[in-house]
């Protein structure tokens, strides 16, 4: 096996959120960045929450860390008290150079994995996540693309085959890779529909647009409706982070 891909696992550590069954095993070959976070209202200073809850949170983090380590993962842990969960998750994903963020959910058997491929942008990181997490398992991965208007099936097939070849080059068994192309209006709906037969999903993070502002990130929309773990592959961040927010 090559590099362990870094996967950020955010957990609301003080609200009884735990690691769902099967997730430690799923990440056995990954480098887990375990983010325990606690969201506090604006009236409360983060330090105030830390003063009161740090001990309990640390004890909980010890348990969670052990779960992952027992399963075989390497673990790096961070505990953050924050007013804005999404900001914290984005920051850590960037700081720890994570390839993907896991939205955890229960997984019993890991047989079929759906990999949603949007386009060539970011496909390198997608490949590294799929290879790093699933190469050592028996799971079959299905590379899936929702073709846009004016995009021919041949183009779509080339895209998926390119990814498949890359995985095979890295040593992924060819007979464990399938491809599938779909045509439907809305990619998010298409992905949600397709996930019915799968145990886990790998998809890209999309660029923030007005629509994601209003409706939330597609990955979150999908994760809300899909009953399994979702790996959200992070797009490459520029070296110097743009300071535009707020």
């Amino acid at each position: 096996m090559t590099d362990r891909p870094s996967v950020l696992v955010p957990i609301r550590v003080l609200e009884g959120e735990s690691i769902p069954d099967g997730v430690p095993k799923l990440l056995a070959d990954a480098h887990v960045v375990l983010l325990g976070y606690h969201v506090i209202p604006e009236q409360t200073a983060p330090g105030q929450a830390q003063m009161q809850f740090e001990e309990r949170a640390t004890a909980r983090m010890d348990e969670l860390e052990e779960l992952f380590e027992t399963a075989g993962a390497t673990v790096e842990r961070r505990l953050v008290f924050t007013h804005a969960a999404q900001k914290t998750i984005n920051r850590l994903s960037h700081e720890e150079d994570c390839l993907a963020v896991l939205i955890p959910d229960t997984v019993t058997e890991m047989d079929d994995v759906l990999v949603a491929v949007r386009g060539t942008v970011g496909i390198d990181r997608l490949a590294r996540v799929v290879d790093g997490v699933f190469a050592g398992t028996d799971a079959t991965v299905t590379l899936y693309h929702v073709a846009r208007e004016g995009e021919s099936d041949a183009d779509a097939q080339t895209l998926l085959d390119g990814l498949a070849d890359r995985l095979v080059d890295n040593g992924f068994e060819e007979d464990r890779i399938k491809t599938r192309i779909e045509r439907e209006q809305d990619p998010v709906d298409a992905i949600v529909d397709a996930t019915v037969d799968f145990d886990a999903l790998v998809m890209g993070e999309s660029d923030p647009t007005l629509a994601t502002f209003v409706f939330g990130l597609p990955a979150d929309q999908v994760a809300d409706q899909f009953l399994g773990p979702v790996f959200v592959v992070q797009r490459e961040r520029p070296e110097v982070e743009e300071k535009t927010e707020e």
């Binding site: 330090g47 830390q50 953050v80 707020e246």
Partner: peptide, 20 residues
């Protein structure tokens, strides 16, 4: 710039920008 570091692996996130 983004946190107060409070020990080994504990951080307090900074969330108020210039406008705030």
């Amino acid at each position: 710039d983004e946190t107060t570091v409070q020990g080994d692996d504990v951080e307090l996130e900074r969330t108020i920008g210039l406008v705030g």
